[in-house]
């Protein structure tokens, strides 16, 4: 199945999906209008179109350039060098780039026999970000959603065990959010 065939099929079967403005390079990228129709759409994709392999769950925080305060900056003993190893470069905002207080969730689904992949995108507001969990459809979503919850702070409603997975329990905040600020803990000197 080629991407064009898939697109025409999707347009017929799931007309509420629209082509995303920013396409993930080389893969067909579709945008969901709202979180309500996520489960229904993914179930249709899985059962009717054979997308039974959830390859990736990811999220992007579109707030703007990352804050340097989110990094642990140890004082450098070499006085003429910059403080700490991180950050190596402080990112700045790109002019005219549509930064917005939204978190964009990205799912990548694959149809193994047809050798085709589909990227689903959904934007939710940053404050109290929540989307339905795909755990009921894909067990693969279990840990990936926990990871996104831990690092990005998106609550997946309906997840059976939505707890932190990678960061220690004393860490406050969600490190991959762009406005994350590191709070000193007992491991900082």
């Amino acid at each position: 199945m080629t991407q064009d065939e898939l697109y025409s099929k999707l347009a017929a079967e799931l007309p509420h999906l629209e082509k995303a403005q920013t396409q993930v390079k080389d893969y067909l990228t579709m945008r969901l209008p709202s979180a309500d129709r996520l489960l229904e759409t993914v179930r249709a994709l899985k059962e009717r179109l054979g997308f039974d392999y959830l390859e990736m769950v990811s999220a992007t925080d579109w707030l703007g350039p990352v804050k340097p305060e989110g990094y642990i900056r140890n004082p450098n003993p070499i006085v003429f060098m910059a403080e700490g190893a991180t950050p190596q470069s402080i990112p700045t905002a790109t002019p005219n780039f549509p930064y917005r207080p939204m978190i964009e969730l990205v799912w990548m689904l694959a149809n193994i026999p047809e050798k085709i992949r589909l990227v689903l995108k959904l934007e939710v507001p940053r404050e109290d970000a929540a989307v339905p969990s795909l755990c009921g459809l894909f067990k693969a979503a279990d840990w990936q959603e926990r990871e996104i919850y831990d690092l990005m702070g998106v609550a997946f409603t309906g997840h059976p065990n939505l707890t932190k997975i990678l960061t220690p329990e004393f860490l406050q905040g969600h490190p991959l959010r762009k406005d994350y600020v590191h709070v000193k803990d007992r491991f900082d000197e």
């Binding site: 993930v24 390859e55 990736m56 990811s58 999220a59 992007t60 925080d61 350039p65 470069s89 990112p91 700045t92 790109t94 780039f97 930064y99 990205v106 990548m108 067990k139 693969a140 279990d142 840990w143 990936q144 990871e147 991959l176």
Partner: peptide, 24 residues
């Protein structure tokens, strides 16, 4: 999964790690 906003650093890098999935 790599996102660029036109700066010298990746805006977002997500790693889909096979071991992570195989361990779950």
């Amino acid at each position: 999964f790599l996102v660029s906003d036109g700066q010298a650093s990746p805006y977002r890098m997500h790693v889909k790690a096979p071991s992570f999935m195989n361990l779950a």
